[in-house]
Amino acid sequence: MWNPDTLKTVADTLQTVKSGAQDTGWIMHHVLDAREIDLTPFGVIHLPQIHLFGIDVTPTKHVVFMWIAVILLILAFIAATRSYKKSLVPKGVTNLLEVLIVFVRDEIAKPTIGHGYERFLPYLLTVFFFILTCNFLGLIPYGATATSNISVTATLATISFAVIQLGGIFKNGLFGYFKGLIPHGIPFWLLPIMLVVEILGLFTKPFALAIRLFANMTAGHIVILALIGLIFILRTYFVVPVSISFALFIFLLEILVALIQAYIFTMLSSLFIGMAVHQEH
């Protein structure tokens, strides 16, 4: 069974993996998180290393872009609030923000949560605008998509999970909430299975949220980079127009995806909140 060929194969595979890992670097470099912000040809900004309680809490590229998103949002909303203080009629950027706010309120929160949706509106609006801004920051030159980092999406999904569970528990009570998880009218011998399934279901929902956002935001960039990489792999100029036009198409698609994913994340969070708060449905 264990002949020298097998040994050779394993050794080759190891070799390929070793060399191959370095080969993907030129693509993954643009997608992965980093400890510096690459502004070639203007130079590279090295982020300061910070260690706190034995954890490496160095602000990485994605963290910096989250902060940029936060600053942009705060500035935009300060302008919007000021404009509302002047008059109730919106103007300029306030109009755009208002359309999105009203969209989140009337198309996402109101129909999915229903009665008592006002309590969750700040969370849903924040998550929507934060994801939207992070998604769009990845589409500008030198930008990075913080939402294409699994740590970021998993954290956002965990916060969503916390909001869903706490919303349900505050509304129905701790015991009432977990009792409400199990559907009415099932035979008692199914109870143990249902309990496991339902509790598993609670965790799969935010898991799906995290993976969906991460995968969608990563995929577009990788496809664009692969299309551009085609030029260097095929080593011919004839592929340039094809690569560029396809990459442009994917970029336009990414704009759409950036909007859709922000909407989907907010929409599903809102839906799960609605399900946790109004369990009778």
Partner: peptide, 13 residues
Amino acid sequence: VNPGVILWTVVTF
């Protein structure tokens, strides 16, 4: 998964 990024995401959000 980078724990530092998780921490920063929570704080930032």
